[in-house]
Amino acid sequence: MNDLTEIRWHGRAGQGLVTAAKLLGETALGTGQYFQAFPDYGPERMGAPIRAYTRLSLSPINIHSQVHHPNVVLVLDPTLLGVVDVTEGLAEGGAVLVNTDKTAPEMRRVLGLEERDVRVYTVDASAIAMDTLGREITNTPMLGAFARATGLFPLDKIIDDVRSSFGKKLRPEIVEANVEAVRRAYAQVQQG
């Protein structure tokens, strides 16, 4: 179980958080890995802060408790900063990836992580989403950024899975707009 990666997603209900957590699971499936993807359900309304989780491992995952010490935290909505403690329980040596127009060093200060052995990544997923999708749905660009920041999956694999998963439900031009969002976010991730 030493290779277990535990990921916590922060966002607001309606931003595609659970879809992204599950899509990452499907990506893991395609590479022969074991995974879990599960939401943290409460009395959600559109716009309320929510969390979801993904676990990834090369061996079967037996644990079924909540994720208390994530290795990776993704923040899909920058307005959650200061509202939700997004770094709660973050494991030493872990990583935070935030959708923001701030630089990575600025974000490290905002999150109070100056003294921590934690990597901080930023990407302006909202701007990318507005530009490619015309709506602030940040889940797919954050998947692209995740692939770059963690190196866990190649970009092509994420793109294949966005195409196969979204292709069942969405029009081809929307699917391709999502693919473009993934590509741009992958290219634009900053580390600080």
């Binding site: 599950k22 699971g25 499907e26 893991a28 499936l29 074991y34 995974f35 879990q36 993807a37 599960f38 939401p39 359900y41 995952i61 079924h64």
Partner: peptide, 12 residues
């Protein structure tokens, strides 16, 4: 099966 814990956990 355990509600949410496995009913809503996507796994292999």
């Amino acid at each position: 099966q355990d509600g949410f814990i496995t009913s809503h956990s996507v796994e292999r």
